[in-house]
Design a protein around this nucleic acid. Sequence first.
DNA 1: AAGACGTGGCT
DNA 2: TAGCCAAGTCT
Length: 330
Amino acid sequence: MTATPHIPQPPSTAVPVTPAASATPVTPSAPGPAAAPDPTGGALHEPVITWFDEHARDLPWRRPEAGPWGVMVSEFMLQQTPVNRVLPVYEQWVARWPRPADLAKEPPGEAVRAWGRLGYPRRALRLHGAAVAITERHGGDVPTDHAQLLALPGIGEYTAAAVASFAYGQRHAVLDTNVRRVLARAVTGVQYPPNATTAAERRLARALLPDDERTASRWAAASMELGALVCTAKNETCHRCPIAAQCAWRLAGKPAHDGPARRGQTYAGTDRQVRGKLLAVLREAVAPVPQAVLDRVWDEPVQRARALDGLVSDGLVEPLPGGLYRLPLT
DNA sequence: AAGACGTGGCT
DNA sequence: TAGCCAAGTCT
């Protein structure tokens, strides 16, 4: 992880000044500093990558032996789920299914069962579907091409870029919530990025991308790690930040977010909670479960039925004759 | 394009 | 405590 020889590069050669970059570095209405920050990545890449070399966590999917499949599995699991909760499930998963073809030949319900309590179990179904597609269309190897990755179930813009970058060292803008926050603060000068990813953010991320593949993929991992460990959503620790001295938000006095508060997602009493309870029963069961057993997880019959129907139509639950239910075999 | 979609830890 | 937050995707 930290074995890479430290070869400082002339910052000016990392990313040339481009018209596109200097055209849109700062949101016009942003309460940033009077002087626009350096719109190029030159001043950011070197310190952030050097910091990463020293402070990166030793995560299993970052080790060489993880391979593209390990990277891909980790990316699915990390979608909206914290690292600490992913770690044990990831280890079990790759030990049991070391290659896409190993997972592809299992019933989808086994993927859902092995997903455990990571949440958003449709991800398990999609990862299984991706393994099937990889086995059928790509000879069992995780595709290297961004467009082919994007075509797989459960892989969107972020995950396609992440797999291409982390597994294959390609040059892509990897724009996750961590990177968005780092750029919002360091470059744009605001506390939080917009609720939904904007074209301006993508433009900025592309403008900041180092020219060569090797540096670009390290920058992707490093900027993400900085957001995860230092430039966090709350209680950021600027004294540990390698680019604190040039952070537009900090230089502006760390003004509080002004826009609309992020929509809080209520959970108690929702269909999601009911679905979770139903699926928990089915995950633990070794045999098909009678409707009467499922009925015990929620007392309101209309919502309970709606939740179960939803699970069935999502393919997470398979109904059998006689009012029995189980995780899907097909 | 706003909302659905799990789960658990932290403040 | 109640809300916020965590490497998004899909419709």
